[in-house]
């Protein structure tokens, strides 16, 4: 008996016992998973049933050894959908893979009774199914991993956009409070949003506040200088504020040259300088 006719046999077998297999499978799933399916039992049952349907359909084509082939498209699409949903709900890879692996037990117990009289067939069918389900299980993990990566990537981007606001402090004065480490990607976004804001507001002075930057190494300093140079090309001067004592020490020890840039210890000091430059001033008036 060759592999193709075996696959067709299995397909018939699944169709014949679809309901009891489904029941067993559901029970296994529920017994093994730590938490209930967020979409509810109904949804899970629906998924399982669809999977058995499409599995039987794909096996009927006889190509049990190649799950990347066309006849397995539907199975793969369904698994992709399920894995992606699970990645979104924060399942562990383990729980995701269990979906496929827990089917083995219910299939195999039923096969034991069905093919009891022919041990050789039983073994070869079991071997085929086992490899097949392993392959599908690995596929779910791969999809799961991919969706998780996508989620992380999206969050990174959102974080980037969130963490670089440019605020208008006064007429012609902008402030750019930097929080977190400055890498090349962030510098690019910081630069773009600062320059765009300079165009929008016609600002003459931008205060870059680095209170929230944990460390300043040569690379970060270089990125800062680049931003300042770009702002200057647009006709705006920059002031760096929020330099903490340790950071002042590091900058000098590293030999970074910030001499051409106006630097101040606090944002307030920088603001006063900026006001003077733009011709405004703050005075205290006696309280009435």
């Amino acid at each position: 008996m060759n592999l193709n006719t075996q696959a067709i046999d299995v397909s018939k077998f699944i169709k014949k016992y679809q309901y009891p297999i489904l029941q067993d499978w559901m029970q296994n799933l529920k017994a093994q998973s730590v938490r209930a399916d967020p979409a509810g039992d109904e949804q899970l049952r629906e998924h399982c049933n669809q999977f058995l349907d499409s599995l039987a359909e794909a096996l009927r084509s006889g190509k049990a050894n190649d799950i990347t082939s066309e006849s397995w498209d539907e199975v793969r699409n369904l698994l992709t959908e399920i894995s992606q949903a699970r990645a979104k709900y924060g399942y562990t890879p383990n729980e995701t893979a269990l979906f496929i692996f827990s089917l083995k037990q219910s299939l195999f117990t039923r096969m034991l009774t069905e093919f009891a009289q022919d041990a050789a067939t039983l073994v070869s069918i079991m071997w085929m199914l086992s490899t097949l389900l392993d392959g599908l299980g690995l596929f779910t993990i791969e999809v799961f991993q991919k969706s998780r990566d996508q989620i992380i990537l999206r969050q990174q981007q959102e974080l980037l956009e969130l963490s670089t606001p440019v605020v208008k402090l006064w007429k012609n004065i902008l402030a750019l409070p930097l929080i977190g480490t400055l890498d090349s990607d962030r510098t690019q976004i910081v630069m773009e949003s600062l320059l765009q804001k300079i165009v929008d507001t016609g600002a003459e002075i931008a205060i870059i506040d680095i209170t929230g930057v944990p460390t300043v190494d040569t690379l970060v300093a270089q990125h800062l200088l680049k931003t300042i140079a770009a702002a200057r090309l647009m006709g705006a001067d920059c002031i760096i504020s929020g330099i903490r004592p340790q950071i002042a020490q590091t900058i000098v020890h590293l030999g970074v040259n910030l001499e051409d840039v106006i630097t101040k210890a606090t944002l307030a000091d920088a603001f006063v300088v900026a006001l003077e430059r733009t011709g405004s001033s703050i005075t205290n008036r006696p309280l009435a």
Binding site: M191, L195, I198, A230, L233, M234, G235
Partner: peptide, 26 residues
């Protein structure tokens, strides 16, 4: 005057900060 943001970024990345030139927004 009137340098576009993208142009400013390009020049800085090219290492041409035009240090000898005065600049203004408009």
């Amino acid at each position: 005057v009137g340098m576009q943001p993208a142009v400013a970024i390009t020049l800085v990345e090219l290492g041409l900060a035009l240090t000898g030139v005065k600049t203004a927004l408009n």
